[in-house]
Amino acid sequence: MSAGGSHRGVLKTTAIVVICAFAFGFAMVPAYRIVCEHVLGIRLAQTAASASTLAGMSEDTSRTITVQFVANVNSKLPWTFATEQPIMQVHPGKLVDAWFDATNTSSHDIVGNAVPSVAPSAASAFFNKTECFCFTEQVLKAGETRRMPVRFFVDPRLPRDVRELTLSYTFYANEAATQRLSNTVSPPPAAG
């Protein structure tokens, strides 16, 4: 046919497009992180803010920010989890503590991880935690209750139109770590 190139050529070109597109799907994983953190300024990583970040800041007493706290537990984790203070009024630049309580209501030891989320998302870059129970795995023995702190400050550069922030935590079961725990601490339970 007059229009004819070779079929093999088209097949090769299109196969390359398909492979690149498949790779692109996976490339979106790091790309998403980079775009969120460097272009849009949304913080995804849960790392502690260093003390030096706070050192250069002065407390801004002219503004008061309302911080709301929300505590959730994933349905697969038999814990209760609550905040001691639903609302706090804070000045930007001041280091504050908030407290949360978690209880393991099951009859075995479980490792949990808390995942934080700050709303509105645009303000998340200005919400800094210097210490948080969400940075590490939390091991609660059967029936144990623990009081856990979050030490945070709000960056004074927070846009002026933001007056209210919500910090929400969801506790998830860390199944791999719980498995390790039951393997090392106690002999495996009898089959049943």
Partner: peptide, 20 residues
């Protein structure tokens, strides 16, 4: 669907009659 699409692309690019 990917194989179907490749086939359609190859057909349209390579198999048109003269004048099409």
């Amino acid at each position: 669907s990917i194989m179907g699409a490749i086939n359609i692309i190859a057909t349209i690019l390579n198999m048109r009659a003269p004048g099409m």
